[in-house]
Design a protein around this nucleic acid. Structure first.
Lengths: 229, 229
DNA sequence: GTCTATAGACTGATAGAC
DNA sequence: GTCTATCAGTCTATAGAC
């Protein structure tokens, strides 16, 4: 239908521009200019700029989470309900990294938009983002199944660090590229994923300061970080 | 002087508001309202909004880098020109984390502003940020001295991951807190620093791509074959 | 140096013809 | 559903009185 064509044209243009330049720097006029539709069409179809952003975020968030959980389930089923920690981390960061660092398909736009959304706290997204917590909690539980002896707090920190490395790699790939003068190959997506997975898995298995000998010359005393459960 | 009081009042108010809400969401009217000065004073003292941001960024950037390099030098001097990798990472991420996660002094504002600046690419900061590369390169070189056998590419990735974990911890401490239901104590600044340092040091020493195809488990080998490939 | 007042340009949103 | 035209509000920046 012609009605849907305008709607999806707006969504596509908005997602691409938002991914590139951020929410506050992209006006509705930029979007309708890119989509080749009329300015009033945005408010007719979505009501407001914020509702347009929210619709984009919800759609993409659900899709990404579905892929993550499918990968997680496949890994756990293959291991009889208990996947290697590397596989759990891979299911968490793989879909996002794969979407963002790959060839410039539409996928790169999607993941970049999601990163942008996680940074710029637009009101409509703030509310939705709380739902993301329960999604991440499922990965925390899977990690606990993978590492039954790990303390909860170490699991949470490991999950946090895994996402941190993945997101920063997407967000600031340019700096890494300049710093390494091209030595860090960001085009090798699977290689990047394995680097993040390896680093996060190391942090999860051996990275708790409680199970790590304190640095010889630690100037400040650490508090006791681990309270089992 | 009265002339300096207006100027610094603007700088303080601007830094605090920018740190809290980002550049594009804070107007000059917000700033002068907070500072208790007149709107025209901003343009009189700084010329434009962008130049105000740039002045803030340059000042804080220089100060942070100075602290980082002082810590690095102290660590390398103590080790005869070669510091443990943990000390190098600690000099890199410690000052920023310490400034951001500590008690709500003026320091938290400073570091939060810098994180904000590294995210939102305002034109004046984009140019200055390239200078940051050469600063980071000094840390890459120090890491190479600490780990002479490591490949350059692994050094760059490790440095990148260290900054990623530190920045994300500052930026998204709220999510980590909610996810862990308060188990992850972000008030224990030195504890957080050690977690980041430990995880980054592990990635730097054991996270090389040699473990890409055949993941070499660290001390905590759990005799479980990888379910992947 | 500090103020008032305002210019000039943009924004998101809407009313009403078709 | 799509368009034109326009509103009311916001912004940065500046001119000119004091």
């Amino acid at each position: 239908m012609a009605t849907d064509r305008t709607r999806t044209a707006i969504l596509n243009a908005a997602e691409r521009l938002y991914a590139e330049r951020g929410f506050s720097d992209v006006t509705l006029r930029d979007i309708v200019g890119e989509a080749g539709v009329n300015l009033a069409a945005v408010n007719y179809h979505f009501g407001s700029k914020d509702e347009l952003i929210a619709e984009l975020y919800v759609t993409r968030s659900i899709a990404t989470n579905r892929i993550r959980l499918a990968e997680l389930k496949a890994a756990e089923d293959a291991g009889g309900g208990r996947a290697p920690i590397e596989a759990v981390v891979r299911a968490l960061v793989g879909p996002t990294l794969r979407g963002c660092l790959g060839p410039a398909t539409e996928n790169t736009t999607i993941a970049r938009f999601m990163i942008r959304a996680s940074i710029e706290s637009v009101p409509p997204i703030r509310k939705i983002r709380n739902r993301e917590i329960s999604h991440l909690r499922r990965f925390a539980q899977a990690m606990k199944r993978s590492l039954p002896d790990a303390a909860d707090v170490d699991i949470y920190w490991g999950l946090h660090f895994a996402l941190a490395m993945a997101h920063q790699t997407i967000r600031d790939s340019e700096r890494l590229n300049k710093l390494s003068e091209g030595a860090c190959d960001l085009g090798d997506v699977e290689g990047v994923i394995e680097r993040v997975v390896t680093a996060a898995a190391l942090a999860l298995t051996a990275g708790s300061p409680s199970s790590y000998k304190a640095p010889a010359r630690a100037a400040t005393a650490r508090g006791r970080p681990t309270a089992r459960d």
